[in-house]
């Protein structure tokens, strides 16, 4: 299917047509920042946004998800039996997602959807969701997607890619799901040569503005233990306060904890975001904690993203360069600096 075009004025009609058939999630301005939320009116979707503060991972892997519920009533024959908590898997469109965030879901799939194990909720949400992306014409100063194999116009994780060309949007349909979704909408035109040239120009200037901020490849070649034992971790970790900001905001941090909460004679089994930055994360029942020190936890976050993951999955880094952790770390720990240190050819003793 070749690219199609719609003028800005007619675009809300497209959103309306989507809303008639799907649950539509889009960037919505809440307070000072945008976040992905279900829209009830077309005008709530704000595609003029730069990036959401929280990544959209919560749409597939919620912060706190009720997995099961159970009864604890003494003579209830069903007592203690876990029953799946009701969830909505009706078809859904995520409109305006950034290429990097969509790519992140693919990186996360290797954890939630393997040949041995499928996380039922992740998998069903992925199946029933269509991702209509929006290219980044003006990447943020903290973005570095192009240095890690994705980019502001990357189509890899998307079903449809929209490009805002000023007077309207072009749409590139990429998958069958994308075709189905675009198929229920009407009002599109073919792309004129001027628009298509403009789109190319936007792509080029976006990619050029990002440049290549570091060379990731040397990390792949390096010995794991050499990196693990490197002396620079001591300096990297000093400022860190071990909060959950970087991991909670990150689209590729998938770690969770499972807890039971009981209220009277009813209980819920809940899955919660967890963070390798928290000491409790690795606290054993025996009382031993293999990562009791801050240095060990900070190192884990970077080694997981930049060394263990690439070595295990041969899938690139578990980071898409969205820059959220750079922007919001309260003490300015910048993963780009850490990559530069990890990839530097000489890991000199401090």
């Amino acid at each position: 299917m070749s690219d199609i075009y719609i003028s800005r004025g007619k675009f809300p009609e497209i959103i309306g047509q989507l809303m008639a058939r799907y649950r539509v999630y889009a960037p919505v301005l809440k307070g000072e920042y945008h976040e992905f939320a279900k829209i009830e009116k077309t005008e709530e979707a704000d595609l003029g946004y730069q990036n959401t503060r929280l990544s959209p991972k919560g749409l597939f892997h919620p912060h706190a998800e009720r997995m099961f519920e159970y009864s604890l009533v003494k003579d209830d024959p069903q007592a203690g039996i876990l029953k799946e908590a009701p969830k909505d898997f009706s078809p859904r469109v995520v409109l305006g997602i950034r290429p990097c965030d969509a790519k992140a879901f693919q990186l996360d799939d290797v954890n939630f959807d393997t040949t041995a194990y499928q996380d039922p909720w992740w998998v069903r949400r992925r199946q029933t969701t269509t991702l209509i992306g929006l290219a980044c014409n003006e990447p943020c100063g903290t973005c570095f997607c192009t240095s890690l194999g994705t980019g502001p116009f990357d189509t890899a994780g998307l079903d449809v890619l929209l490009v805002d060309t000023g007077e309207g949007y072009t749409a590139q349909v990429l998958t069958q799901k994308g075709k189905d979704v675009v198929g229920i909408t009407s009002g599109w035109e073919s792309v004129s040569r001027t628009v298509s040239e403009k789109m190319e120009g936007l792509r080029k200037s976006a990619e050029d503005s990002l440049g290549r901020q570091f060379d990731f490849d040397p990390i792949k070649q390096k010995d794991m233990l050499e990196l693990f034992n490197a002396s620079f971790w001591d300096e990297v970790q000093f400022a860190c306060i071990n909060c959950g900001t970087c991991t909670f905001l990150c689209p590729t941090c998938w770690c969770f904890d499972i807890q039971d909460e009981v209220w009277g004679d009813k209980g819920d089994r809940i899955r919660l975001w967890d963070s390798c930055m928290f000491p409790l994360f690795t606290f054993h029942g025996s009382g031993h904690n293999p990562r009791s020190q801050k240095l060990q936890r900070v190192r884990q976050r970077f080694m997981h993203k930049l060394k263990y993951y690439p070595d295990k999955y041969h899938n690139g880094a578990a980071c898409v360069g969205c820059g959220r952790c750079v922007k919001f770390c309260p003490v300015n720990i910048d993963i780009r600096e850490v990559v530069r240190r990890m990839s530097a050819t000489c890991v000199c003793p401090a």
């Binding site: 306060i241 909060c243 963070s275």
Partner: peptide, 9 residues
């Protein structure tokens, strides 16, 4: 978001 940055700072 219960990140505890406030507490840890």
């Amino acid at each position: 978001i219960r990140c505890y940055a406030c507490r840890n700072a």
